[in-house]
Structure formats: structure tokens, C-alpha cells
Nucleic acid binder design. Structure first.
Length: 427
RNA sequence: GCGCCGGUCGGAUAGUGGCUAUUCCAGGGGACUGUAAAUCCCCGGUCUUUAUGACAUCGUUGGUUCGAGUCCAACCCGGCGCA
């Protein structure tokens, strides 16, 4: 069964070290969760993923619902069996796609971390965007009950409600699932943030109620069949944990209100969602985590970069996932202790050294920059595998260091040392 | 020697009288934070005050025209054919 134990806390802060126990094994926290949107961490086998130090993977409801379909995954024996992943698994609710295919669709500069403060990015018609003389309709539109999506691959229309998302997630069968939410753009005005938050709260409650109903229904079936297989005991009943998601944009009032409300519901843990401007994130996380019940785990959704992870852990997050290590890897971006490099730069064509000095990952132990740079230029698939292995190893071992130093009391020194090397004078 | 065809960026291409010479690849750089992402964006003739700037440029040289990569002539180079 699902539970969370805290082993050690930061003396004057929110950060902590713990263990999340799931039906498919334990997660030592804080932990970086690898993103496997379509049921695979792109370019890696489960064995390769484990070797990087990744403990758990998060897949996506929207993508798997569209292809191959959650029923098909169920018929494959569930997501664990289909993926051949024996460790803990999570699924995102599809709520983020409300954002990425809705308000953020086709607008450069609006993403998880927004770098542009251009108010014009906020278009009057929320689900339209203009390019040149053409106006395009975004493939996701929100109403009080749910969201209409158009499939990005065939244009077909689909309707998600909180209940639908939970149904799909139960079919997929991950250990930790998320409530259906709306992720807003930081450029939205306060009145819209408020409206969206109220909707997310209603959706959270509906997600939870439906989740409980599905569990009691399947528990009844399970108990009815219990006698048929003498090996089975009641303990074998599989029950996913549901995390509720806190939103509220950049407003302290809304964030706190959301943490109060979501925290008061009977969730197994929490997600902190939202699209941020770079400097907003720490504050938002701190507002939320100082209110959310301490004894339940908190997952910061979609974050991030080394600096973000240190701050998130310091402010009390236990889990986080991010596409960044694997996505930048596929485009030649490589983390090193002295900052990020772009392997496709000309200077690395003749660099016979490993990606990152004394790094202990499979890639660094066996390959040179010049060889991997060659693989990229030759568009060889192995390039993506090798850099993904390195970047995941880099991030998971950085987080390992956070766990260790929270235990030993050296976290702040570790943070300072790591970041000053990584960002040098750019901090 | 004669005839035909062809010469446009590093390579390949589009353009057959109209003002900004197209696209792809290769090259150089950038972006990427709950993955529509092995994707996307920028640069790529010269000069300068780096711009909605000036001046060039489609083998070479002339010509026709208000205007030529485009039409005409000669020449140069390449391919094919015939001697």
C-alpha cells in the first residue's frame, strides 16, 4: 500500500528526505522522475533507465489515450507490463495539455517557464492565435465541465472531464495518478486565474470522488473473486494513489487558498502545477508547501533545471519531473558540472574527452565528445541514447547529493558549491 | 570543325521580361522546464553607423528594353552527337 515516511528535515526550512512506498517499490525522496510521455523514456530501455539512477517514470494520459488507447494498454496487462518497467510509475492527468494545446498553443514564449513578459502574448480570444494574416484555433478549449481536445495527429475531437481522466488513468494502472487540472499562463489576468482555480478545485473534488468510487467498485470485484485463487490475499488488491494539484498562478492569495483547499481533501499526495516566470517559482512553491500537510508527498510538476531543483527541494518538494534532460539530450544539449554545453558546436568535433570529466555514467565511461558529436551529425540513433543516459545520470546523481546532504546537514553548502560551478558568473 | 544541350551560394535545385533569386542538404549559432519536439528559430556576396542601409551578383563581354538570371550576339567552359 501507498505511504510516505520522512527521515530527516532541513533545520530551518521545508526540505526533507523520505521514502514513498508504492505497490511497485520504494522511491527515495527527493527524487527526479523521468518523463515517458507515450510509455517510453525516448531512446532508452528500462535497463538503461535504471542504470542512470532513475527510480520512477511518469507517462501521460492524453497521449496514451489517443495512441494506442487506454483500453489497449489495459489489455496489454497495464502500463507496467507493457513498458517492462517493474518500478513505480506515475501518470499525468492530461491537465497540462489543456495548457500546451490550449492557451499556450502556437504562442512562442509561453511555456512552463515563461521568458517573455510581453502582454500582447495574451490574446483577446483565449483559444486563438494569430500568425501573419491567419488566425488559428487552438486544439483545446475549456468549459466548466471539461475540455475539448483535437488530436494533434488526426484532428479528431475528444472530450476530457475529470472522471474521464481518472477512468483512463485507472486503465493505465500507474501507482501514482493525478487529478485533472487546468494549468494557466502567468500572463492571464487575476480574474481569469481565479476562475480557472475554482474550476481546478471543482475538478479536483470530482477526480477524488470518482477515484474512490472506482476503487471501491474494483475492490468489491476483487473480494468477490478472492476465494477463486488460493494464492491471492487481500493485500494483493492494487490501488493507485491519487495526487491533487495546487494551482493559483503567481498570486500569493490564490496559491495559499489552493493549498488550503486541495490540502484539506483526502488525497494521497499533491502536485504543484502552473506555468511560471523564472523568478516566481520559488515563492509559489514556498507558499504551497508551507500550507500543504507535511506528512504527504509533494510533486513539483514539470520542473526542471539544476537551479530549480535545488530550490524546489529546499522549499519542500519530494518529487519533480521534467522533459528537459531527455529533450535537450536529443538536440545535442549536455549537462556538465561546469554548465550546459551544446555538443553540436564545432569545437567538440575533435574533443577526445568524455562529456563531463569524471562522470561515472555509461556514456562518459566509454565514449568521447568527438564520437558522439559525429553520431549527431550523422543522425545516428545512438547519439540520443548516449546523451539521454548522461543527462539523466547527471540529474539523478545531483538529487542523490541533495538527499545525502540533507541527512548530513550539508545541504546549503552543497547547493552553493554545485550551483556556483554550474552557473559560474551567470547566477 | 559542325550541330544540339547546358553553366544560378560549398553541393543540388527553382526561376523563361517586373523590382527582396526559391527551396533542400551540408556549414555556423541559438532555443527547449507535468514532450504535437531525433523539433523549432536565426545566419550565410561585399561594405558600413548592422539597417525597412548602400552597393553588388545567376560563366564572360557587349547589346535590346523603362526594366535582363530570363531575350539577342560573340566568346569561355562542360556534356552528347556527327565528321
Amino acid at each position: 500500500m501507498f505511504n510516505f515516511t520522512i527521515h530527516k528535515e532541513l533545520p530551518n526550512g521545508l526540505g526533507r528526505v523520505g521514502t514513498i512506498h508504492t505497490p511497485h517499490g520504494d522511491i527515495q525522496t527527493p527524487a527526479f522522475v523521468a518523463v515517458g510521455t507515450k510509455g517510453t523514456v525516448k531512446s532508452l530501455t528500462p535497463e538503461q533507465i535504471i542504470e542512470t539512477g532513475v527510480q520512477t517514470i511518469i507517462a501521460n494520459t492524453y497521449h496514451l489515450y489517443l495512441e494506442p488507447g487506454d483500453e489497449k494498454i489495459k489489455n496489454m496487462g497495464g502500463l507496467h507490463k507493457a513498458m517492462n518497467w517493474k518500478g513505480p510509475l506515475m501518470t499525468d492527468s492530461g491537465g497540462f495539455q489543456v495548457f500546451s494545446l490550449g492557451v499556450a498553443y502556437g504562442k512562442n514564449g509561453v511555456s512552463k517557464i515563461s521568458h517573455k513578459k510581453n502582454e500582447e502574448l495574451l490574446l483577446p480570444a483565449r483559444n486563438e492565435f494569430v500568425e501573419g494574416s491567419m488566425t488559428y484555433k487552438a486544439p483545446a478549449t475549456i468549459d466548466p465541465n471539461g475540455v475539448m481536445f483535437r488530436s494533434h495527429s488526426d484532428g479528431s475531437a475528444h472530450y476530457f472531464t475529470p472522471e474521464k481522466s481518472i477512468d483512463i488513468q485507472h486503465n493505465l494502472g500507474a501507482d501514482i495518478i493525478f487529478a485533472f487540472d487546468e494549468c494557466t499562463s502567468p500572463l492571464e489576468p487575476l480574474h481569469y486565474q481565479k476562475e480557472a482555480l475554482e474550476r481546478t478545485h471543482r475538478w479536483a473534488k470530482r477526480s477524488l470522488e470518482h477515484h474512490k468510487e472506482l476503487i471501491s467498485r474494483s475492490e468489491e470485484n476483487f473480494l468477490r473473486d478472492l476465494g477463486k485463487n488460493p494464492q491471492t490475499t487481500q493485500k494483493d488488491f492494487f490501488k493507485p494513489a491519487l495526487f491533487g494539484i495546487v494551482q493559483g498562478g503567481r498570486s500569493e492569495k490564490l496559491r495559499k487558498e489552493s493549498a488550503e483547499y486541495i490540502g484539506s481533501l483526502d488525497f494521497d499526495g499533491f502536485g504543484i502545477g502552473g506555468s511560471f516566470e523564472k523568478e516566481d517559482m520559488d515563492k509559489a512553491v514556498e507558499w504551497c508547501n508551507s500550507i500543504l500537510p507535511k506528512e504527504k508527498p509533494r510533486h513539483l510538476l514539470g520542473i526542471g533545471e539544476p537551479l530549480d531543483l535545488f530550490n524546489a527541494v529546499e522549499k519542500g518538494c519530494d518529487l519533480f519531473d521534467c522533459v528537459s534532460p531527455t529533450r535537450i539530450a536529443r538536440n545535442g544539449g549536455v549537462y556538465t558540472k561546469n554548465g550546459r554545453i551544446n555538443l553540436l558546436n564545432e569545437q567538440f568535433r575533435n574533443d577526445s574527452k568524455s562529456l563531463d570529466g569524471d562522470c561515472g555514467c555509461y556514456t562518459c565511461k566509454n565514449y568521447s565528445k568527438s564520437y558522439i558529436a559525429h553520431l549527431f551529425r550523422a543522425k545516428e540513433i545512438l547519439a540520443y541514447t548516449l546523451t539521454s543516459i548522461h543527462n539523466l545520470y547527471f540529474i539523478t546523481h545531483m538529487v542523490d547529493g541533495m538527499r545525502e546532504t540533507i541527512q548530513t546537514g550539508d545541504f546549503m553548502a552543497y547547493k552553493k558549491d554545485f550551483l556556483s560551478r554550474y552557473y559560474k558568473d551567470n547566477l
